[in-house]
Design a protein around this nucleic acid. Structure first.
Lengths: 192, 192, 192, 192
DNA sequence: AATGAATGAGGATTCATTCAT
DNA sequence: CATGAATGAATCCTCATTCAT
């Protein structure tokens, strides 16, 4: 009975292999046999777990966007906005440091045409959580009175900026860049 | 007889058509005949001006990254850092508003595997200009003493955040978002 | 312990399932797992009873062509040619009415490239029985002096025509069509 | 300009090659490269003329079923039923003798699942023409008072019987079999 | 120089068959 | 014996690129 456990393992192996290959060579630039080889399975096996290459990216996207959402939602959103921001920024940071490929994958596939409605929704869920946090901070007078989606775009954008730098110029950036930047980004967010 | 001029026109028409189609359907999702049709030329003609599809994206990338660099370098980098930042931010903004597809294209193709060394260099040139600006501001004590590439990553990232918001949630963002955000981003940059 | 009996049952179940699925979806359009599911066994089990999918169709073809041959040979070939024809036609009719799928299957797979020599022989055996009958009728002066294989082709063809009509336009044909047609077909056969 | 004439030629070459290969090896048993090779073109060229393998069979089916229909409708349906039958039978015969593969193809693909609605309609058109002829003959009292579709099924079936014999036992049958059989089949049709 | 039909290598997907459990 | 997950060869189809006109 190679059933339950083995199947889960194999599915996970395929997802892991797909993550690495897609980040290395792009979704379109990756062939299914390449994913299979990286996962240590035969080509046909991919199709036992995912109906198509497209279904595979979507599953991968949802898996990691969901993980990210859970991390961010789990960050304690205490009364103090600065504190809440610290937890949110920390959650994002630890996610990137633990799963750099996953974060890169999510960014690369931000709004690609092959993502289906459910996957896009997963992306939106992450956004709305952050937007609610911002609105609360504004109500408390601690955050700038800009449109909350705009604040979120600025903060999330700044964060992605660091990640890109980390990937592109690894020697100029390191893991501490996130901590270094936190205060600066808070000055972007908070009421001046 | 306007052979040379006609050739320039045709080359430009192909580049313009490629820009639109690549942004709409992705580089990988675009076929050469599609570009040809959008440009109003025959498929074979594309190959008279560009040796391959890959050479075409690279040419396109360099054309617009160069344009962006020229705009940013042309922004008067006067003595006052706040002023200089205003010009830099304004140059970026006007570029995006005048050539939204071009900016989207540059972002989408940020670091794709089919970009060659020269294209990557074009990206770096833009960065180094900004980094020099930052270093000058730091020397004057006006800008936070963070590593200049990190500052640039944060600012450029925040800017891209707005652009993404503009493209994804057009109704929540508009052209004035850039102006609205300028002060906030300056607070991210300047010495607290 | 009823190992032998169980094996027979399972083999029969597979053949029955294959008959239904092949008629419904074509030999080429049927997958081995589909047959297995219809038979209520695992895919691998099919291969315990038949070395290949091709061997399975061939076994099926022979099983039913043999059954048909036995029925036709069992029809009393009494002295009177009209009587003999009546029995032959009746045997054919009752076979079709009792095993419509089997007859359809035999027709669909009339001379497919995957039938092997032995299967083809089974088809010929059926023919030669009928041809002998015709030759006897001709010797008695009751049947037209056409080449016996031609007479058989005409009669068998007419019969198949009814079956096809039954399958294609079920509402215009019914089981009584066979009886209705018998006299007409006899006029085709008998000496004018 | 390889345009008009060449394109027609190539399309025709592909259809001709497909006819031969499909008859020889079955639709499902034929690969697209095999058709391409038989047609003397590259695989991709097939797809310039037909969107898919399925579209190709359908085009082929319609082409020949249409030709057959035109032949049968062109047969003079004079007042005398025996005469009309003679022309109908003769049209069918000459079609088979001139295009044996085409007729075999039409029979093999009689009601396959990959034929689309329009192709099926082409088949029905042939039938209704024959049925009208039969109804007229019955009104004149010359044809048996059986349901016209049944008469058609018997006659068409008998004809196919000869064709099958011709293909399976070429040595026992020849082109004259059709003429030999005509009177016998008329006795099947006419009022006794 | 321009055209666009033709090419064929390469990619996604299917499915007959095997074999470890 | 039975199972059904795994295999990978074989198929359909796409599309970057070429080249005769």
């Amino acid at each position: 009975m190679p059933s339950a456990a083995a199947a889960v393992d194999k599915r996970a192996a395929i997802l892991d292999a797909a993550l690495v290959t897609f980040v290395e060579r792009t979704y379109a630039g990756t062939t299914v046999p390449q994913v299979a080889e990286a996962a240590g399975v035969a080509t046909g096996t991919i199709y036992r777990y995912f109906p198509s290459k497209e279904a595979l990216v979507n599953a991968l996207y949802r898996r990691w966007k969901g993980e990210l959402r859970d991390r961010l939602l789990a960050a304690p959103a205490t009364g103090d906005p600065r504190e809440a921001f610290h937890h949110w920024w920390g959650a994002l940071t630890s996610f990137v440091l633990e799963h750099p490929d996953a974060f890169a994958f999510l960014e690369m596939h931000h709004h690609e045409p092959y993502l289906d409605a459910e996957s896009r929704q997963a992306g939106i869920d992450v956004d709305t959580g952050a937007i609610a946090l911002i609105a609360r901070g504004q109500a408390a007078g601690a955050i700038r009175p800009l449109p909350p989606p705009l604040v979120m775009a600025l903060v999330y954008g700044a964060f992605i900026g660091i990640v890109r730098g980390l990937r592109s110029y690894g020697d100029l950036f390191d893991a501490r860049s996130f901590a270094l930047a936190e205060d600066a980004v808070w000055d972007l967010v908070r009421t001046p």
